[in-house]
Amino acid sequence: MAGASIVVADDEPVARELIASYLARDGHQIHTATNGLECLHLAREILPDLILLDVMMPTMDGLEACQHIRSDPLLAEVPVLIISTLDDRTSRLNGINAGADDFLTKPIDSLELRVRVQSITRLNRYRKLHESRRELETAYDALQQAYDTTILGWSRALDLRDRETEGHSQRVTNMSVRMAKMLGLPESEIVHLRRGALLHDIGKLGIPDAILHKPGPLTPEEWVIMRLHPVYAYEWLAPIEYLRPALDIPYCHHEKWDGSGYPQGLAGTAIPLAARIFAFADVWDAMRSDRPYRKSMPVERVKQHIAEISGSHFDPDLTPIFLALQEEIA
């Protein structure tokens, strides 16, 4: 373990140098001051790991210096060890009231000094490590929130570009997340499912408007191009590390249980679970929404359609779960 940075404040040169020599044996970096005021200036400059204060010093004694340390935002968390020739209860209480973390009496026992300093600096390092970890966790959470807010913005832009009904991406995402929770998926997987659902059609950004917005049926040649959008999604998202685990839906949500889907022609449980879950939500929302060429379909008709293509389009084991979920929502 690397040595600590320690300020030793004592107006007696012999005592000051003796303490410094004891602590230097353990690899600590020692900085010395002759009074409390000098100690405060030095501490603000180097921000030490520990401050040792003699009580009786000119200009500013150790107790007053300790009070200043505790009221200084830069130094308030630095441990302070008070050193005094007095060993009575009142002196100890005065030191504690001033904000000291520990108390030593003169003459200094070198072993006791080194052990106490080692204990205090170790605890202070642990506290700093814990605080740094909390700061990192806070920063990580803020970064994840920023990522998710950005993804949500992308999904809204995708809905507009694809001329989907307003809120399509959010609805299919919410539906998929509810089903994932009903199936007992852990939150660590649901977070990726949520991101993938929001970005399920991001690959359509690579599809020409003439094909994407064509009012009539697509030609076989146009279908070849349209079916590339999951591949585009994979190519764009795979290099992004935090989105790589969310690729199952953008890449595989057009796969079908019987293997007749695209782009890979996956069948059965070879289709990722997230994509099998999402397929229900995507079909449900499409059929329940108004389109330029038709009105939304009644709930019972949509349920019937989903039941009819269970085992061909949908995972037959998941179909009753999805339909039960719609009963709960209704």
Rank of each mutant, 00 (worst) to 15 (best):
A9T: 07
D10W: 01
E12C: 11
P13V: 11
V14G: 05
A15N: 15
A15P: 01
R16V: 09
E17Q: 14
L18G: 02
I19G: 02
I19Q: 02
A20E: 07
Y22A: 01
L23E: 04
R25N: 11
D26H: 09
D26S: 11
G27H: 07
G27I: 03
H28I: 06
H28D: 04
Q29F: 13
Q29Y: 12
I30G: 00
I30H: 04
I30C: 03
A33G: 02
L37V: 01
E38D: 15
E38T: 12
E38S: 13
C39V: 07
L40C: 09
L40Y: 04
L40F: 08
L40P: 00
L42E: 00
A43M: 06
A43E: 01
I46R: 15
P48A: 07
P48E: 00
D49K: 08
D49A: 08
D54C: 03
D54W: 03
D54I: 05
V55A: 03
M56N: 13
M57D: 01
M57G: 04
P58F: 10
M60F: 01
D61P: 05
G62Y: 00
E64L: 12
A65M: 08
A65D: 04
R70K: 15
R70M: 11
D72Q: 04
D72M: 09
D72R: 10
P73H: 12
P73F: 12
L74F: 10
L75M: 12
L75Q: 10
A76H: 14
L81R: 07
L81S: 01
I82M: 15
I82L: 15
I83H: 03
I83C: 15
S84V: 00
S84H: 01
T85N: 12
T85M: 14
L86S: 08
D88M: 03
D88V: 06
D88S: 08
R89Y: 10
L93E: 15
G95E: 02
G95R: 07
I96V: 14
I96H: 07
A98S: 10
A98F: 00
D101A: 14
D102P: 05
D102K: 03
F103G: 04
F103R: 00
F103C: 02
T105G: 05
K106L: 11
P107T: 09
P107V: 03
P107C: 04
I108S: 08
D109R: 03
D109V: 02
L111E: 14
L111W: 06
E112P: 07
E112H: 08
L113I: 04
L113N: 03
V115F: 02
R116W: 01
Q118M: 04
Q118W: 05
Q118H: 11
S119T: 14
I120R: 13
T121P: 04
R122Q: 15
R122K: 11
R122G: 06
L123T: 11
L123A: 15
N124G: 10
N124W: 10
R125A: 14
R125T: 10
Y126V: 13
R127H: 12
R127N: 07
H130C: 12
E131D: 14
E131L: 14
S132F: 05
S132G: 13
R134E: 15
E135Y: 07
E135Q: 15
L136H: 10
E137V: 07
T138C: 06
T138L: 14
A139M: 10
A139I: 11
Y140N: 14
A142V: 08
A142F: 11
L143H: 14
L143P: 00
L143G: 10
L143C: 13
Q144S: 05
Q145I: 02
